[in-house]
Nucleic acid binder design. Structure first.
Lengths: 346, 346
DNA sequence: TTGTAAGCGTTATCAT
DNA sequence: ATGATAACGCTTACAA
């Protein structure tokens, strides 16, 4: 390993001068700059980040904590984070937390001793303990969680997104719309999304039909079962994750119901799963990659605190349509229902 | 930030003694150990990894380089790596390379200056340049690539896996089996898998039918189109990725052919995608998570070089079956065809 | 058993 | 414009 001293010797100058040249500071002649640069090239010198960080206290690693590194949502966010980090010259340190606070604490400690420039937390809320553990020098930001506490965060408005989604189904003419939700204590977004659904249903004078799943594919079929038990005449299902939505599509078809002719299905997240089912899932898209990028940008802008709301959008694919004429009376569309979030088609 | 000196002062000993206690070395009385431990607790002292590494030259970070952090295969491997790394007290530094050698080089440099304990490369072959860049002190290992060069690696035998897969379809009675492959220069596993398919087909006296896709879902439909153009009487399709396999299932159904009654479909990798289609895909499973874990273990066992072959296995789900009687003559099973890889059902 | 001091590779301060 | 020199926080001979 070649050090700054080697370069200094080779160039016939002091280490201090080499440091100045390498860091583009002032205080050397063109002549010496040239000599130093030559030496750097010849010896293939690369400054040691560790030593540099030890001295300057400024580092170039960003911590990224995800409950699972292998689920589609986290993967997308990770991708955005990784790209933005590289672009700004930062390295990413990855931790899989499984949402276990002991794991999170462990990573936070590690990140502190590595003097991380900041920490990004996917799908988890920032607690007081976490802030404590990191110390005041290291900022932390959450991604993909609507956080009411005012901590730095990048997320969509989950309540509004679910509201818009439900409104969309109502507008198509559906009245009996089942919600495939999730456990609100382990899955933080489940609560606001449920509120959004309930609000839209209440405004339309429809009664809610709700079952809870795990957000994983496997829980889709039992979830549908439960919804149908509560309301056999269901004409639409709004699933809080694409995985559950995909499972519902497959399960409906297995039961001999056509999608979307008999039952419409709407997913959430616009992960690749939504395209792997036939017909492809209509879904609510979160700009996950953008959210990851935004998170590092906020982290790096010294004090850009507070929550940042990103736009969601409805993507219409083949899994949603108006209910069959006659299957129930048509829903009357009121003027107020025209204002909706922007919507696009893929 | 509290340093070793603070603790020393608090405990009334020298920094050296604190270091000894903290690192569990010998050379102090029970009495002082107690005093030091108290001070550590009271001051909430945490040794600085950076300074420690600078001195000892041994680090606790493992570099993990993946072409995409958001595809299902890499995610699974990452998960295994992450788990094993944590278990051994290592942190994971993540890099997304897109297989661009410039990106890889950049990360390798970073990892060198961070004195990484080792580097894990997903879905890419280790080149001489990479080894050069890392220097002799840092080992590197590839995962999910059959590497003939003898560099450290953890992978399945892709040739054999594809051979077994094809044999399985032959044994079911299929003769006209299409292969949905991939570009062998950008997707390294495409070549051995193709060889395995060709060998099995040749042994059975069947002529190969091959189309190239990208391994992504989108390429499944055009790939099937091409296969059918070459051989309209196809009764089975072997896709080199689950994504392509899932697309083929959907596309076949769209064209009014039933799976598996009219056409069988076999995927590869056993990613979650294989379960998100109906009927669920039969597929070749790689133990991706195990492979990730194995990679860090090999890295950490000082000099456990060379390639490590992991077992693949065939998972039978609903997308494969014998061809319809009469659609073609039954294939005669020879005794040699009985020896097959272990196989399980999910 | 314990302390002193040197040094890991930098950068920053202060002379010159 | 350049060079000594002293940190950064830790480990490790070596000495006591």
């Amino acid at each position: 390993m070649t050090t700054i001293r080697d370069v200094a010797k080779q160039a016939g100058v002091s280490p201090a001068t080499v440091s100045r040249v390498v860091n583009g500071l002032v205080g050397y002649s063109d002549e010496t700059r040239k000599r130093v640069e030559d030496a750097v090239l010849r010896l293939n010198y690369e400054p040691d980040s560790l030593a540099r960080t030890l001295k300057t206290r400024q580092t170039s690693v960003i911590g990224l904590l995800a409950p699972m590194v292998s689920d589609a949502l986290a993967s997308q966010v990770m991708r955005g984070v990784e790209d933005a980090a590289r672009e700004h010259g930062y390295a990413v340190m990855l931790g899989r937390t499984g949402l276990k606070s002991a794991y999170i604490a462990g990573y936070l400690r590690t990140l502190r001793t590595y003097r991380a420039a900041g920490v990004i937390l996917i799908s988890a809320v920032i607690t007081h303990d976490m802030r404590q553990l990191l110390g005041p020098a290291i900022p932390i930001i959450s991604v993909a969680i609507s956080d009411k506490s005012g901590s730095p965060s990048v997320a969509i408005n989950d309540e509004l997104a679910a509201y818009d989604a439900t409104r969309y189904l109502l507008k198509l003419g559906h009245r009996r719309i089942g919600l495939l939700a999730g456990d609100p204590v382990s899955i933080f977004v489940a609560r606001p999304r449920r509120r959004g659904y309930e609000r839209a249903m209440a405004e339309a004078g429809c009664s809610p039909v709700i079952a809870e799943g795990t957000f994983f594919y496997e829980s889709g079929a039992p979830g549908l079962e439960e919804l149908l038990r509560q309301e056999p005449e269901l004409t639409a299902v709004f699933a809080m994750s694409d995985e559950m939505g995909a499972a519902v599509v497959n399960e409906l078809q297995k039961r001999g119901r056509r999608v979307p002719e008999d039952v419409s299905v709407l997913g959430f997240d616009n992960t690749s799963t939504s395209q792997h089912v036939h017909p492809p899932l209509s879904t609510i898209a979160q700009p996950l990659e953008d959210m990851g990028q935004m998170a590092v940008k906020k982290l790096l802008r010294s004090r850009d605190l507070g929550p940042r709301i990103m736009p969601h959008r409805l993507i219409e694919r083949g899994s949603t349509a108006a209910p069959r004429a006659g299957s129930q009376r048509q829903h009357q569309v009121s003027p107020a229902e025209q204002k909706q979030s922007p919507r696009s088609t893929t």
